[in-house]
Design a binder for these strands. Structure first.
Lengths: 340, 340
DNA sequence: TTACTTTTCGCAATCGTTTTCGTGTTTAAA
DNA sequence: TTTAAACACGAAAACGATTGCGAAAAGTAA
């Protein structure tokens, strides 16, 4: 139950001043080898470690970065965190997590909680709620206070900061192109509501791919499922509204797997009768059967890049501001069993 | 690029002392209403917020809890974190994450990094590596310094602290009992190596259930797959060594799903010819097909309980030590399509 | 011995707060 | 008018660490 030992206690015990102890432990030349050795020995014996909080206050930096994400149980986000943690830890930074739960208010609250000295910078993927409200003042204010922000995946155009984004447009195009190439004629897309930026971009990629093949998109092939809706029901409606569907591009794993399930219930074989491509390469895609052909976003790499960007900005503090960078992570198509 | 405003700046601006500002903002009666109002107005206008780091140093607590887990991309752990975060946030605590990556060294490093003032207490699930080495000195030392620890899921008996554990023994028994009840005669278990405590307990539960039904366990029905091994190959060997298998209890989702896959490859129908039960209720279990009957550990609840235990201990600091508590979270069987 | 340099250490400021205590001013009671 | 109480505010210490600077002690040269 003994508290951690401090410089003051070492100083008192050894009858020297606090500054002597501090200097000795940091190998300052002002201290004689004799004294330094004595102090070091005592410190080691008592397992002295400088108090991080005191250092943070003195240096005005906490060596901690704050990560705000909508949902940690979402596999994509946990992979991003893994990447962030890896890079941050390597450079001696800690990672503190804030969950917005896809609520604007909680996102703001979390940021305010952390922005008062606890952290040196943010890495954030904004909530759907925030994208819906289009209210980004908390980001602007935070940056105004000199706290750097890196946005990843879900971002807002009006916030001027470093960004690490997925080329969702190209991902959507890639997936659709693949379906076209293997001979699909009636390709449906299962997306979310339009205000979710990433889904919107994937849909645009889908349209672009169709256009490249001189195919006119049909509204009966496009479905947008809103948060909390009954996915299976919606997918069934999609299949009802167009009986000729022979290819499905879903903007996430759950939608894709539900599509396969519904297709099978309707007597369609995957991939013989219908091919399915999902988005984001999680456990589900790999282990469901048939395993899912999908667009990988390289989540871990996104986390790594985000952390690198942030820490680079934290390094050259006093120097003049560098221009914000945007790193685009290319997607890649992972072929599995759900496409023929 | 203006820094956050401090008490000192407010004081200078308003020609009062720092202490007057502090007192005014905290509604101390010593300050006249007139002065207080003026200060409050100025503070609000300039969006003053006390610096967390300074408060941490002064109060000797950081209002932050450290969570050390082996792998955040593991769905079980991310759900636990969700539970922790929910409770912690409600009480004004932040959550800082350390990933051990199932390495003993990184676990120790992470703890040392955080234990120097950054956090007020730990919630930890130890790494497999640590369980293998059976070296728990870092936990003991941390507690020795007055830092409370709550262990969850994977724990060590020799560490005396609050614990939130799954009744893995009962979970294993429940699953096996279910398989017996639906008529399985040759029930295999797919587990991991013995040093992983949770797997060991589940295996014991399996044996207990067999014993209750007066069935002698066969070694040909018990397989233990080590880290990094080719799961599919191992499962195939299991099916080779005993052709009569009509029920499988797997200690995790991946093993269970692989078992279903291998079974199907061998012409066995799930659940008509063979029933499968997994462990831990993740996305995979819910969305694979046939969907997986599984033992749920109630991960979110575990996180909540862990956070509650830790914060309760942080509250009554100076009081005499309360005895360590162990909370056992009961498992429950979730029936889906993989059992008949 | 004197003067000057070098070595070795402590003082004090600083980071941003909170809080105890002291002090000067005002007000009310005697 | 004197005295005590009430009021309003500031100085300073504390949390734990770092660091520039001044000063004492020791060493060196003349």
């Amino acid at each position: 139950m003994k508290r951690k030992i401090t410089l003051k206690q070492i100083a008192r015990e050894l009858n020297v001043s606090i500054s002597t102890v501090s200097k000795a432990l940091r190998d300052n030349h002002e201290i004689s080898k004799e004294t330094a050795d004595k102090i070091k020995a005592f410190a080691k014996q008592n397992n002295y470690r400088p108090n991080n909080i005191a250092l943070s206050l003195k240096n005005r930096k906490s060596m901690t970065i704050g990560v705000i994400i909508p949902d940690i149980t979402h596999h994509f986000f946990s992979k991003v965190i893994k990447g962030i943690e890896k890079i941050a830890n390597k450079q001696g930074f800690n990672v503190i997590i804030g969950l917005s739960n896809d609520s604007f208010d909680k996102e703001v609250l979390n940021m305010e909680m952390l922005a008062n000295g606890s952290i040196d910078g943010f890495i954030i993927s904004i909530s759907n709620d925030t994208q819906l409200k289009q209210d980004y003042h908390h980001l602007a204010e935070t940056m105004n206070q000199g706290m750097p922000i890196v946005m990843f995946d879900r971002f807002s155009n009006e916030t001027i900061c470093d960004k690490v984004i997925v080329d969702d447009f190209d991902g959507g195009r890639k997936a659709t192109k693949k379906l076209l190439e293997i001979g699909c004629k009636h390709i449906a897309i299962i997306s979310t509501e339009d205000f979710v930026s990433v889904s919107r971009h994937r849909l645009q990629g889908y349209l672009e791919a169709l256009d490249n093949h001189k195919i006119t998109p049909k509204s009966s092939l496009i479905t947008k499922i809103s948060e909390g809706a009954d996915i299976e029901k919606e997918v069934n409606q999609l299949f009802d509204s167009n009986k000729k569907i022979d290819g499905v591009f879903a903007v996430n794993e759950i939608f894709a797997i539900t599509a396969m399930k519904v297709a099978r219930q309707r007597g369609l074989r995957v991939p013989e009768d219908i091919s399915v491509i999902g988005f984001s390469d999680g456990l589900l895609s790999k282990h469901c059967s048939p395993s899912l052909t999908t667009i990988s976003q390289h989540a871990v790499k996104m986390g790594e890049k985000s952390a690198e960007l942030l820490m680079k900005r934290l390094e050259n503090e006093s120097e003049e501001e560098e221009l914000p960078r945007t790193i685009v992570i290319e997607t890649s198509l992972i072929e599995r069993e759900s496409t023929r």
